[in-house]
Amino acid sequence: MRKFTQHTGIAAPLDRANVDTDMIIPKQFLKSIKRAGFGPNLFDELRYLDEGQPDQDCANRPLNPDFVLNQARYQGTSVLLARENFGCGSSREHAPWALDDFGIRAVIAPSFADIFYNNCFKNGLLPIVLPEAQVDQLFKEVEASEGYELTVDLERQVVVTPSGEAFAFEVDNFRKHCLLNGLDDIGLTLQHADEIKAYEARRRQEAPWLFDAIK
């Protein structure tokens, strides 16, 4: 997995609550069997005026000029500001894959849906929860000033504004450790293979009906 240590980039405000994973990447694009290439279809129904099809060249599609990421001042956005319950809905990991492929490195919101939040960490994308009032302040600042950039420092667990104001955020130690070092979860878990085997032997004794039944 790619490491995340510190990142500075243009922030864009996506001002709506309950942005669901269907909105982040609509279902017709989930038919791909790859992990890459979802970026052009990120927020497809908000971003374009026509209905998107898989394997279509998006370069000539009509853009929705009202959509924030289509506006000139937000080109090159890598930090997304969002509202509550971002990423609700399906478990599709295509949602963080699409954000990542588009170039988003961090999403800041007052709350995230659980599965989406978890999926981000598996893909080097950092979801940051800040109190609603602070997110509100960031929305106001980014809208007021073109070229507004935020710095996200995972080591120090802070988001820093252009004026130097720093907002602290919480992150689970294990996830932080994996992200800072770009560690592969599976490799880490397999270091405990003996414990898994011991558990399994015990379970086989206690609930033998759970073994060798599915054939």
């Binding site: 478990s91 978890n118 598996k122 294990f174 599976i186 880490l188 878990t189």
Partner: peptide, 20 residues
């Protein structure tokens, strides 16, 4: 509960999930 694709791979490979 539902999981993402990285976790599908994790469960296939280890029969476990990292959870809280």
């Amino acid at each position: 509960h539902g999981i993402g694709t990285s976790e599908v791979e994790h469960v296939l490979a280890t029969q476990c999930l990292i959870a809280k």
